[in-house]
């Protein structure tokens, strides 16, 4: 199983309230790549990440992580959810949040040990947030919050990372810090899938691009995929037939 790809998705279809938002996604991500997922709003980028993590019920298809069903291999997957998905007034410190990254390895009933605290500190240091370790999370800027989420994912010490819009609402300094960190992770042999919404930078940031609009429009090395024709296919035209069928299925169901 050593040669199994970090992420393999086969014929994945996901529906919200019976309305499909992702159709027959096939994807094999090679190891050690930094992959950007781009597409218009409502293209199903976040849905793909969540479905790959097993957080959403899928209508059909399967997801394998390093050759195993994702539920069995969750420890090898690190996850950065969208920043807006949590309540930042929650009474926890930065350190508490980063320690949550260790919970998967700890298992039930065990408390974080000294070693877990040390790992969390290292991860905070990598995103330059160690000085803020004891702050409550509501006292952070958007970019700082995003770094905390990244540190938490780092603390998972995974081999595959799925990140949902880690660049959303961050300042320029944080953005370049994050991209440097992603490159560092890639250099360590990690595989990263990153949802990104800014086309111009996508071209420079990623080794490979997945152009998504309810289905896979194109997937491959950035220089091959990033061209007018595929982008036109992804963003231009409203994919009317697919949208109409989706609506019809919803009404019938």
């Amino acid at each position: 199983m050593a040669d199994a790809p970090p992420l393999e998705i086969h014929d994945l279809t996901v529906a919200y309230h019976k309305k499909p938002v992702l159709w027959g996604v096939d994807l094999v991500v090679p190891p050690g790549k930094l992959v950007g997922i781009v597409g218009p709003n409502g293209a199903g980028k976040s849905t793909l990440i969540k479905a790959a993590m097993g957080l959403l019920p899928v209508s059909s298809g399967w997801v394998k992580v390093f050759g195993e069903p994702v539920a069995k291999n969750l420890r090898r997957v690190g996850y950065v959810p969208q920043r807006e998905s949590v309540d930042w007034d929650f009474p926890v410190s930065v350190m508490d949040v980063v320690l949550m990254g260790r919970y998967g390895k700890l298992g039930l009933l065990k408390r974080p040990t000294k070693a877990d605290h040390d790992t969390a500190r290292e991860c905070l240091d990598k995103v330059k947030m160690l000085p803020y370790a004891n702050r409550q999370i509501s006292n952070l800027s958007g970019g700082q919050q995003q770094r905390v989420f990244l540190a938490r994912a780092l603390a998972q010490e995974s081999d595959l990372y799925l990140m949902d819009e880690p660049f959303s609402g961050v300042d320029a300094a944080t953005e370049s810090a994050i991209i440097a960190l992603l490159h560092e992770l890639r250099a360590d042999g990690k595989t990263l899938l990153v949802v990104h919404h800014d086309l111009p930078t996508a071209r420079n940031y990623f080794d490979m691009l997945l152009l998504l609009n309810m289905r896979v429009v194109a997937f491959g090395p950035t220089e091959e995929v990033f061209n007018y024709e595929t982008l036109q296919k992804t963003y231009g035209g409203r994919l009317t037939i697919l949208s109409e069928v989706a609506e019809a299925v919803r009404v019938k169901g």
């Binding site: 993590m53 957080l55 969750l74 996850y79 949590v86 309540d87 949550m100 919970y103 938490r152």
Partner: peptide, 22 residues
């Protein structure tokens, strides 16, 4: 007391809690 860390993470970020297999 026993499940403090689980209650904490499921309350704060249920999506992440599921992603670490809780």
């Amino acid at each position: 007391a026993v499940f403090y860390k689980e209650f904490l993470v499921t309350s704060f970020d249920a999506g992440f809690a599921r992603a670490v297999g809780l």
